[in-house]
Design a protein around this nucleic acid. Sequence first.
DNA 1: GTAATTCCTACTAAAATGGTATAGAATATA
DNA 2: TATATTCTATACCATTTTAGTAGGAATTAC
Lengths: 130, 130
Amino acid sequence: MRISSKGKYALELMVYLGRNYGKGSISISEITGDSFSIKYMEKIAGLLNKAGLIKSERGVEGGYKLVKDPSEYSIFEILNAVEDNLAPIKCVLDDDACKIKITCKTYPIWDELYEIEAKFLKDKKLTDIL
Amino acid sequence: MRISSKGKYALELMVYLGRNYGKGSISISEITGDSFSIKYMEKIAGLLNKAGLIKSERGVEGGYKLVKDPSEYSIFEILNAVEDNLAPIKCVLDDDACKIKITCKTYPIWDELYEIEAKFLKDKKLTDIL
DNA sequence: GTAATTCCTACTAAAATGGTATAGAATATA
DNA sequence: TATATTCTATACCATTTTAGTAGGAATTAC
């Protein structure tokens, strides 16, 4: 389960929104400050929005806000909304064949590993890192 | 913890050697058959050899063999021998800074996730998948 | 000597990553 | 209504990583 910067920043964004839960919409520029690319964060926010994890409002005073209590977000659902494939190896979800003589003796390892990772991230809630 | 094809094939190779433990050296071409790149597998075997996990013998009748009983190999040490970074995100081991306003609130998640993954893979032995 | 094997180093095509750029649509406020 | 501010959508691009390929040198059994 390799986490890309997309996943990392998505989580940082959600932490920021979680800390400001109930205070209305928060703009991307407030979240990133001057030190980070607004454009890149916009794209990430767009993914979270499409996945239904946050709600957007356009225009002046616009921004994003959480749609439910921070305690109800698992880390898993946040990462899963922006990452392409959280499995430790593609074949766990993609079903491509091994090109080697002995056919995929190792599959159960990846499968079990993924289950363990997913469980941990599903049990962990956004409130745990606020 | 994203497993690359290098890690996957390293493990398949170790499985093959494990199944033939005590039968002398096994050549790469026997392991891969015609269906897979001998050259690529050679490189992977070289990494395992350098890490001290297998022992090589050159020349006719040469090949590779395990240096200890299959039950003594953890999956972790096998993957760790060929993968560059098993951590879920580089900063867990590389110590690079977050480029975002709120500084790395998420770090403990990656760290804890890595510990869980590593424990699972350390407890799992090569014999478990023979 | 010859064939089979590992060892070593360099190269490369394709994919993924981490953004940037440009333009457009919606909205609060003056 | 005009304007500034914000999200939305799509296309583009440089760098890094991945997944091999290629060629040959060294070693050893026979």
